[in-house]
């Protein structure tokens, strides 16, 4: 539990950070809250020679509204998300999710950017970002570009980020007040990854579901956007038949690992149970 030797840098701007990453190459890693990277360094599963701490870059932290879009700095912490009035008003599913991540001490340090950029399917925010159709702004030595969350996750710890790029902000369209939402997570204890979790946002009009999006956490190599499951809900009256169909469609795309949280079969079924419960709760919140 003792990491190997590394050099530590604390740049004060995102430009400076990506310049350092470009200069130091493959052996450098950006450090956000550190709750994923530092444990793997301590077990020596990762041994970066250079750590670029993004914690000193003030521009990367904070929440603002641009038109109908909420822009969240990558270094905004889970605690910031839990206490932000803007987030509570426009994206209330985010604090509902943040509250289920780890414990207060970790939430003071853990960041949204770190959570989404790490590529760990056990993290809660990636599936939620896919569900909300978020867009990540990334910066590299070659300049800035945007990547849709739904196109970001390619494999376990494997994302669309190029070497030397960092996520600088996350842009999400504000939810309408009439939107129903819920994040349901099954975990063994505080601080544990999800056995399975489901994020649901849906709209209802005239008794029919008019739109729906579903994200699933920790039940495959990547976070999942359950498109067929969502499609099964749209146009329905969110009756048992439609929900059964959605659950079956969600279970069909999972491929969880066998670990201390359970067997693949169990975790698949729990994805279904969490989805069922999230839909039920989202329905009670949806207006229209």
């Amino acid at each position: 539990m003792i990491p190997g030797r590394f050099d530590y840098y604390r740049p004060s701007s995102a430009q400076e950070a990506v310049a350092l990453l470009a200069k130091l190459g493959e052996d450098a890693r950006p450090l956000a809250g550190g709750h994923s990277l530092i444990p793997v360094m301590k077990t020596r599963l990762a041994a970066p020679e250079h750590l670029i701490d993004l914690g000193g870059i003030a521009d990367l932290r904070g929440v603002k509204v641009e038109g109908d879009t909420v822009v969240i700095g990558a270094m905004t912490t889970q605690h910031d998300l839990l206490t932000s009035k803007v987030i509570a008003e426009h994206l209330p599913i985010i604090p509902e999710t943040s509250a289920l991540i780890a414990d207060p001490q970790i939430r003071y340090l853990g960041t949204l950017g770190g959570n989404v950029a790490n590529g760990d399917p056990g993290n809660d925010m990636p599936a939620l970002m896919m569900c909300l159709d978020a867009t990540f702004t990334v910066l590299g030595a070659g300049g800035e570009r945007t990547i849709k969350a739904r196109e970001f996750y390619l494999g376990t710890y494997y994302t669309a980020l190029e070497t030397g790029e960092i996520v600088t902000s996350i842009r999400i369209k504000a939810m309408s007040k009439a939107t129903g939402y819920a994040y349901e997570k099954l975990k063994r204890k505080v601080g544990d990854y999800a056995t399975a979790a489901a994020a649901v946002v849906l709209s209802v009009s005239g008794g029919k579901c008019t739109s729906a999006a579903i994200g699933l956490t920790n039940v495959a190599e990547t976070p999942l956007l359950a498109e067929d499951a969502a499609a099964a809900l749209v146009g329905s009256s969110l009756d048992k038949v439609a929900i059964d169909k959605a659950v079956a469609a969600a279970e069909a795309i999972t491929n969880p690992a066998h670990d201390a949280r359970g067997t693949p079969q169990y975790r698949t079924k729990m994805a279904g149970v969490m989805l069922r419960r999230a839909i039920a709760r989202a329905m009670t919140r949806a207006h229209g």
Binding site: D103, R188, K189, V190, G191, D192, Y193, D259, A260
Partner: peptide, 10 residues
Amino acid sequence: MDFFLPTAVE
């Protein structure tokens, strides 16, 4: 992470 040590919450 795997060995179950409950917290006060559980």
